[in-house]
Structure formats: structure tokens, C-alpha cells
Nucleic acid binder design. Structure first.
Length: 758
DNA sequence: ATAGGGTTAG
């Protein structure tokens, strides 16, 4: 009697006072403890029962004990109890079997659960549901759906209930099995289960995870009984879709229409959609709300805030959240580590890793993955190799993420053979893996290899996605391979990937680099959505083609449309100005980028303007600008000034610039050649000899030979200066001679004083 | 029934 009132202590007294203890009494006390979640007490009484030997536990005792084993997370004990049950001949009992199945499942012992399930001769609905759920919760998705099918076709005529549907729907969600999901939706409607809150919520979740946000919304709208889980699922749907506005609209609706407040899960669903600087305020508001509601004790919430703050550009706030965590787990460290690695402070990421190791925590695969990203960003092969070594030492689990990160690390550090070795060793090469390798080739100036690998990918019957197309277009662009580029453009059209903004940009860029700015413009005009990046590509394209005016026009148009130019846009416009010698416009752009759009000029931006000034002979202005910069000038800047001095015969200034250049790059042959050409231009032959002697002393080889190539009927021909391979062909020689004559007639006088060593 | 952190691209 007491056992039902939540006073196990009282029932214990009654129990202890009884002189004759029958099984009924034992069972009452065991189940009282279980009901009150006093698992250890339940197990102790069970032991007492066994020791007392007065009576044998039955098919009511066992399920209680099995549940207790599951709750205290002791799989060994569970197995012992199972053995005992077998000995007592209870292993075939329906209730014992069902309890065993779900508790084996809890420990991930799926095979053991399945064995018990199959062994059970009289399965009821709970048996089927339990097994389906065990498969589903342990990631055995195929088996879960398979068993669901078996259940529908079973001879016992099993009819699924809400619990069944709620177990299989997450499987469809995880596997993106929209067809199966729809079928289950039909079953739910037919059986009048679709209005059950749990079923309806699971449906919303399933549609959302399969990418059908509208359908998720429809299911949500059709059901009037909603709880916080329903709202959370819908919020998650829009958040996953990256729709910031809708995500927060739903939140507002939830608060207004149903007067429900956000809980921890709501926050966890809201935060991932905040991944831009512009969402920082939202994160701060959510943070304040969370503090007010005591969510700061939830580890998941804190980690999510660290990530969100980092993504929104406030690494300081991310750090503050982290500092407030009392019991830091590997996950908390990982959140911070990833925050620094992904958001522009890779060296801090390495620092965090050291701190993490010294606080006795063992980095896991997530940590390694972030570390590799940091090393890649830093182009630090040394650190990268260390991390790789550490990963191998840890047992080197073949995690696809790690593989891809390693490939990316090695390609970014120019070690393509290492990358290729890893790529070929990948068991199932993911699309991302293919892309890492393809873009690796492309980034290292090996566009032909990139395209060949892409062909291989298509031949293997893999369907490429937007990102791969972007990489391939980048390779085409480098080759100026118009035909190949067009082919890729068509491929993207056919594959329906053309509406992606990145793809659009790459196509514009590819046509511009392949000599067809008209095509770039046409592609741009046909874009469904024009963003900053697309306009930037077009502006840069105009720059390449010497259309400075058009570039400036588009640049103004962009601002009128209310689009904010970014650092890439400024790079494009400055290069266009540089190309056309539009110095004043260039200087104006440089001056306004910080003031008007908050884009801080980087070295490349300065380099462009300095190059312009140098070409115009305004060396004083150039030097003044260098002194004003808040960054140290790099070799490229001195190189460009030195080149300008050579063209203008500015010997003394040139020598100064050369000094700076050689300080930074003392071992590059090209720099010495440039200096020697400066001397040659002024007839200082002694100095020329001196420079060349110095080169010999330093053991510097020849300058890289300049080369050019052209695509004719799909075949690419390479030309290197001094190459006799093609010039032997009579036709080419004849054309060349006539060009030579023509160019002289217009007044071109070739410069012959330069001395090259090639 | 809803719940995190990592990989590829300009």
C-alpha cells in the first residue's frame, strides 16, 4: 500500500517487519524502489532475495531488476542478471525479453538485444517497438527500417502505434529517406495518429532534416496541439535552412501565440543560425536570456554560445563564456579551439591546444580536426606534421573529416604528393575528399591535374555538387581554357547547379579569364540573385580586360543597390584602376574603404595603389603611403617599385628599393635579375657583372622561364621563351615575321638592353 | 518526440 505513495522507506519498514516473506512481498518492495528511481536499493533487495532462498524471483521481479541495471549503467551486471534468468527458465518470458532488449540497446549491445528479440517466440507490439527503437537509437538505420517492414508484413498482423512511428521517423530523418518518411506520414494519417503531438513533432523533424522546410511547416500548421518540442522542431527547421529571419519570427510567434518561453533546446536550435557579424546582437540577447533562466549550467548551451560568439566575430566574448565554465570538458575546449581556428586566429588555436593538453585533458578527433585547420591556415607544415603524427599515435581512426583536413593541409603547404598518397588511401572517398584534392591541384597551379581528377570523379559515377564545380571552374580559369570552361558551364546547367552563387561567380570569373568578358556580363545579367560576390567577380573581370570605366560604373551601381563592398570588391576595383592607370580613383577608393564601409585595407590593397603610383613615377607618394601603412610592406611591394624604377631609369631610388627587397627575399633569383636589369638600363655594366657574380656565389639558379599557352581545338599548346619546338613550323614563323613588321610600323621599339640568364 | 563541436570553395 505504501509503495504506491512514494514512500519506499515506509514500505521498507512494513517489509522488514513481516516475518513470512512471500514472493509477492519481495516484488512489491523491488518495484517500489524502481518506481522511486532508487536503483541501488532495488538491486540490493534483489540480492537479499537470492540469499534468503525462500522463494525464486519470477517474471515480474526480473524486468524490474533489468531496468535497474540499465539505469545504473552497469552492463556487466545486466549480463549476469540475464544469465540468472536463463538458469531460472525465465529467458523466454515476454516481459523479461522486452526488458532485456531495450536495456541491451541502452549499452549499444545491439547484437545481444537482437538475439533476445529473435529468441522471443511470442512477440507483442512492445517487443517490436523496442527492437526497432534499439536499432534506430544505435544508428543501425537499415536494420530499423527493415524490421519495421517485417513488422508490417508479419503474420501476427502487427499494427504499428504512435511509439512505432516515433521510432522510425528519426531514421528517415537521419538517412534523408524522404520517400519512406512520406509513407510513414500516410500510415500516420490513415491510423489517425498524425495529430498525436509526438508523431506530429517527429514528422516536422523528419521533413526538416530531409530538407523539406515547407512541408515541415504544413505539418506543424495542421496540428493544433503544440508543445515546446513542436516549436523547437520548427525553429530547428528554419535554422538548419539558414533562414535567420524566419527562425526568429517563429521564436516570436511561439512567445506571443502560445506564451511558451524558450528552453535550453530552443537556444541550442537558435544559435547555429547566427553565424555572421550582423547577428552578434541576437547572440548577446539570447545570452542575457539564458543567464536569466539559469541555462548557464548546461554544458551544451555554453559550448553553443562559444561557437556562436566566435562565428559572429567576437572571439573575446567567446573567451569570456569559456572562462566562466567551471568544469571544462574536452567539448568546451573544442568549442573554443574551433572558434579560434575557424575565425581568423589560428595561432591562438595552437596556444589553446597547449593549454588544453596541460590541463590533463585528452584531445579527441574534433580537437585534431580543428588543429589541422589552424595549421592549414598558418601554412605551417611543421605543426601540421606534428598533429598528423599525434593522430597516428592515437590510433589513427579513419575519420573522413580528418582525412580531408590532412589533404587540405598538405596541398596548402604545397606537398601534393603527400596529399595524393592520403587521397588514394581513402577507403570511401567522399565528395568533399575529391574536392579537397581537385582544389589542391588547382591552387598549386596544376589545373590540368585538377581537371583530370574531375573527369575521373565523373567517370566513377559520382554526382558532383556546387563546390566541386567551383573548384573545376577555377582550374579552367587558370588555363584560360574557354572550351573546357564552357563544357563545365554546361555540366553545371545540366546538373541544375547554376543557381548557386559561388558557381555563378566562378563562371563569370572563368569567362573573364578566358578572354570573353561579354560572356561574363551575360552570365551576370542572367543570375537569379546578384550579391556582392557576383558583382565583385564582374568588376574584377572588367579590370582584367582593361575596362576601368565599366568597373567603376558597376562599383557605383553596387553601392546604389545598397550592397556593401568587401575586401574582395576593393581588391577588384583597385586592380582595375591599376590596370588602367586611374590613379586618383584608386587613391579615393583606398581612402574611403575604411571610412565608408569599415573594410580595413590590407597589404594587397596598398600594394595595388603603390604599384599605380610607381608606374606613374610618383615615388615620393608611394614611399609616403608605405610609411602610413599599419602593416609592414612585403617583398611584392618593393618588387613592384623596383620594376617601375627600371622602366623609368630611376637608378638611385631603384637601388634603395632593391636593398629592401633583398633584405626580405635574399634567395630569389628573380630579384637579382630585376636589379641587374636596372643597372643594365643605365649602362652600369660593372654593376651588372657584380650582381651576377653575387648570384653565382649564392648558388642561385636561373629565373623561371616565362611561358604562355593557347588552347586550339581542345588541345593546349605551351610556349616557353626560346622554345624552338613550334617555331620550326613554317606557318608560325611566317605569321610571326609579319607581326614583327606590323608592330614596328606602329612604332614599337623592342627593348634590348635587358640581360636575361635564361 | 526537439539538443554540439570538425572537412571542401572566391
Amino acid at each position: 500500500m505504501y509503495s504506491n505513495c512514494g514512500f519506499p522507506l515506509d514500505s521498507r519498514i512494513v517489509f522488514d517487519q513481516s516475518t513470512v516473506k512471500d514472493l509477492c512481498l519481495w516484488n512489491a518492495i523491488v518495484s517500489a524502489y524502481v518506481r522511486n528511481e532508487l536503483w541501488f536499493d532495488a538491486l540490493l533487495v534483489f540480492c537479499e532475495l537470492l540469499i534468503a532462498c525462500e522463494c525464486k524471483p519470477d517474471n515480474f521481479t526480473f524486468p524490474c531488476v533489468i531496468k535497474a541495471c540499465g539505469e545504473i549503467m552497469d552492463s556487466g551486471l545486466l549480463q549476469s542478471v540475464h544469465g540468472l534468468g536463463l538458469k531460472m527458465g525465465l529467458a523466454c518470458d515476454l516481459f523479461v525479453c522486452n526488458a532485456l532488449v531495450s536495456n541491451y540497446g541502452k549499452f549499444g549491445l545491439v547484437m545481444d538485444a537482437a538475439r533476445v528479440f529473435e529468441h522471443n517466440a511470442n512477440k507483442n507490439l512492445v517487443s517490436w517497438n523496442s527492437m526497432i527503437s534499439v536499432f534506430s537509437k544505435n544508428g543501425w538505420y537499415g536494420s530499423s527500417l527493415g524490421l519495421f517492414g517485417r513488422m508490417l508484413n508479419s503474420q501476427e498482423g502487427m499494427v504499428p502505434d504512435d511509439a512505432t512511428l516515433v521510432s522510425v521517423l528519426p531514421v528517415c530523418a537521419a538517412e534523408g529517406e524522404i520517400e519512406m518518411g512520406r509513407m510513414i506520414h500516410c500510415i500516420a494519417v490513415k491510423m489517425k495518429l498524425s495529430k498525436e503531438v509526438k508523431v506530429s513533432n517527429a514528422l516536422v523533424d523528419m521533413y526538416a532534416k530531409c530538407g523539406y522546410v515547407t512541408e515541415a511547416q504544413v505539418v506543424f500548421d495542421k496540428n493544433d496541439s503544440r508543445n515546446i518540442v513542436s516549436w523547437n522542431s520548427l525553429i530547428a527547421a528554419y535554422s538548419r535552412d539558414g533562414d535567420v529571419c524566419q527562425t526568429f519570427n517563429i521564436l516570436q510567434n511561439m512567445q506571443v501565440k502560445s506564451s511558451l518561453g524558450a528552453n535550453e533546446v530552443t537556444i541550442l536550435n537558435l544559435l547555429p543560425v547566427c553565424l555572421q557579424r550582423s547577428e552578434l546582437l541576437r547572440v548577446r540577447i539570447l545570452h542575457a536570456y539564458s543567464l536569466r533562466h539559469g541555462f548557464q549550467y548546461n554544458e551544451l548551451v555554453l559550448n553553443a554560445f562559444i561557437t556562436a560568439y566566435a562565428k559572429c566575430g567576437s572571439l573575446r566574448s567567446a573567451r569570456n563564456v569559456f572562462n566562466c565554465i567551471e568544469n571544462r570538458t574536452v567539448s568546451s575546449w573544442n568549442a573554443l579551439l574551433g572558434g579560434y581556428a575557424q575565425n581568423g586566429d589560428p595561432s591562438m588555436a595552437l596556444d589553446i591546444y597547449l593549454q588544453m593538453s596541460s590541463s590533463n585533458l585528452d584531445p579527441d578527433w574534433f580537437s585534431i580536426s580543428s588543429l589541422l585547420l589552424a595549421c592549414t591556415e598558418l601554412r605551417s607544415l611543421r605543426h601540421g606534421k606534428e598533429v598528423h603524427g599525434f593522430h597516428i599515435k592515437k590510433g589513427s581512426v579513419t575519420d573522413p573529416y580528418i582525412f580531408v583536413s590532412l589533404i587540405s593541409l598538405y596541398t596548402r603547404c604545397g606537398k601534393l604528393l603527400c596529399a595524393k598518397f592520403l587521397f588514394e588511401g581513402m577507403e570511401d572517398k567522399s565528395l568533399v575528399g575529391w574536392n579537397a584534392m581537385i582544389s589542391g591541384y588547382s591552387q598549386n597551379g596544376l589545373p590540368t591535374e585538377a581537371i583530370n581528377l574531375f573527369r575521373k570523379l565523373v567517370c566513377e559515377g559520382i554526382q558532383p555538387h556546387e563546390i566541386v564545380i567551383t573548384s573545376v571552374l577555377g582550374a579552367c580559369s587558370q588555363l584560360s581554357a574557354l572550351r573546357l570552361g564552357k563544357e563545365t558551364h554546361c555540366f553545371a546547367l545540366k546538373a541544375g547547379l547554376i543557381d548557386d552563387l559561388y558557381v555563378g561567380c566562378s563562371i563569370i570569373d572563368m569567362y573573364a579569364h578566358s578572354g570573353s568578358i561579354k560572356q561574363s556580363q551575360r552570365v551576370f545579367e542572367h543570375l537569379k540573385k546578384r550579391d556582392v560576390a557576383a558583382l565583385t567577380c564582374l568588376i574584377a573581370g572588367y579590370g582584367i580586360h582593361g575596362c576601368g570605366e565599366e568597373a567603376l560604373y558597376r562599383f557605383r551601381e553596387m553601392q546604389m543597390l545598397g550592397l556593401k563592398p568587401d575586401r574582395f570588391t576593393y581588391m577588384g576595383i583597385l586592380m582595375a584602376c591599376d590596370h588602367m592607370g586611374l590613379i586618383e580613383e584608386g587613391i579615393k577608393c583606398l581612402n574611403e574603404m575604411q571610412v565608408m564601409h569599415g573594410v580595413e585595407p590590407e597589404l594587397e590593397h596598398y600594394a595595388c595603389v603603390i604599384d599605380m603610383l610607381g608606374r606613374a613615377g610618383r615615388f615620393d607618394d608611394a614611399v609616403e603611403l608605405i610609411e602610413d601603412m599599419h602593416v609592414e610592406p612585403d617583398a611584392a611591394i618593393w618588387n613592384s617599385l623596383l620594376s617601375s624604377c627600371r622602366l623609368r631609369g630611376e637608378l638611385d631610388l631603384g637601388k634603395q628599393f632593391a636593398g629592401k627587397l633583398l633584405e626580405l627575399e635574399p634567395n630569389k633569383a628573380d630579384n637579382y635579375i630585376l636589379l641587374s636589369n636596372l643597372f643594365a638600363g643605365s649602362g652600369k655594366w660593372d654593376d651588372v657583372r657584380r650582381v651576377r657574380l653575387r648570384m653565382k656565389e649564392l648558388g642561385l639558379g636561373k629565373k623561371d622561364a616565362g611561358s604562355s599557352w593557347i588552347e586550339v581545338k581542345g588541345k593546349t599548346y605551351n610556349f616557353v621563351a626560346g622554345d624552338k619546338k613550334f617555331l620550326e613550323s613554317k606557318e608560325i614563323q611566317e605569321i610571326w615575321s609579319s607581326l614583327d613588321v606590323g608592330i614596328n610600323e606602329i612604332g614599337y621599339v623592342p627593348e634590348t638592353v635587358e640581360v636575361t640568364t635564361s
